[in-house]
């Protein structure tokens, strides 16, 4: 019965979103069928379009997994955006400092270094939260801005390519690239890295004692404290892994797409990752599906803008409304979740 009502709630949300889309499309004087068909054609209509969905989903999966791991212990990581940039800095520094490394070693080290850089960026607010009870929300936001500006400084000073007047680093050696998967498209091995990370996170969270402790801490940290589960250690560890995964997302954007450090490699992936994690209910499989869905929404809306003249900002509207409705659905469509929890 509860399942039925849950399903009904989600159907209602889907119907509301569809209605809003139709109203928005009509508001700009466009044709609804044409808009929807161009939306779908943008995603499924061509090989390239579909590969773009996977390309954009790659950083969302990784950063989304990171946010989800943090959520498991109650660490609300709004800082994935900054951690992505730290990962990008990591691979750039490595590639420029040791250009002679063989490809396998280079990529492996880059992923490791990106994980550590991103992890450090997130472990600081993690320690502040676990040790001193300082809210991580604002700290992680502040670290986003510091990271963003740090990249701005680096590409104008120490990491600047002296032969160009633009703020960007020199090209990284070819060894610091992910292999391309389907040559004319932009799809790169980073997507496989993201899927592997999803499996690793699943094993960690659901198949190891550490994962069990993390989930327990997130559900009731006081009970854990009394039962002898180290709360501090688990929050700090999950914060580190959380930032580390976002760091790998940053490594992937450089190794797979840009091949040099530039500003603006992430159009808000770190913030969208939080929504991805929420939609995926902090479960690795859910995160992968949600990341693909959000990415498809963006790719489809680009095509809708080209073909039917509907502004791409419709994607943001739908995404934001979806999250608000999902959060509010307990009250809107009967409180089934609450009943389940109480039983």
């Amino acid at each position: 019965m509860n399942r039925f009502r849950d399903a009904l709630g989600f159907l209602a949300i889907a119907a509301i979103l569809l209605l809003i889309s139709v109203l928005l499309i009509l508001a700009v004087g466009s044709d609804v069928t044409k808009a929807f068909s161009s939306f779908l054609r943008g995603i499924f209509g061509s090989f390239y379009g579909f590969s773009e969905v996977l390309v954009r989903a790659t950083p969302l999966i990784l950063a989304g997994l990171g946010v989800a791991v943090g959520f498991r212990t109650g660490f609300v990581n709004i800082g994935a955006e900054g951690q992505i940039y730290l990962g990008a800095i990591a691979i750039t520094v490595l590639g420029l400092a040791a250009p002679g490394l063989p490809p396998v070693l280079m990529v492996g080290l880059a992923i490791l270094l990106g994980f550590v850089f991103g992890g450090i960026w997130s472990v600081v607010p993690g320690i502040l939260k676990a040790r001193f009870g300082i809210s991580e929300v604002i700290n992680t936001i502040m670290l986003n801005y510091i990271a963003l500006n740090l990249v701005g400084v680096l590409v104008r000073t120490w990491l600047k390519d002296p032969s160009y007047p633009y703020p960007m680093s020199p090209m990284l050696p070819a060894a610091a690239s992910y292999p391309e998967l389907l040559s004319p498209t932009r799809l790169h091995a980073g997507f496989l890295v993201a899927l592997a990370a999803a499996v690793a996170v699943y094993v960690l969270v659901f198949r190891t004692p550490t994962g069990f402790e993390m989930r327990a801490v997130g559900l009731n940290s006081r009970a854990c404290h009394c039962a002898g589960i180290p709360v501090y250690k688990n929050i700090v560890l999950s914060a580190f892994i959380s930032g580390g995964l976002a760091g790998i997302a940053g490594v992937g954007e450089i190794a797979g797409l840009h091949h040099r450090l530039i500003e603006g490699i992430s159009p808000g992936y770190g913030y969208i990752a939080i929504i991805v994690s929420l939609l995926g209910q902090n479960h690795p499989l859910g995160v992968v599906v949600a990341a693909l869905g959000v990415s498809a929404l963006h790719v489809g809306s680009l095509s809708m803008q080209r073909a039917a003249g509907v502004p791409t900002s419709i994607a943001s509207i739908i995404m934001g409304t979806l999250v608000v409705l999902i959060l509010a659905r307990k009250s809107l469509f009967g409180s089934t979740v609450k009943l389940v929890r109480e039983n």
Binding site: I78, Y271, I272, I274, I275, S313, I314, A315, S316, I317, I318, M319, G320, T321, V323, V324, L327
Partner: peptide
């Protein structure tokens, strides 16, 4: 966060 996306859009 969701409202930030919603209103931006």
């Amino acid at each position: 966060l969701a409202l930030n996306f919603l209103i931006l859009g």
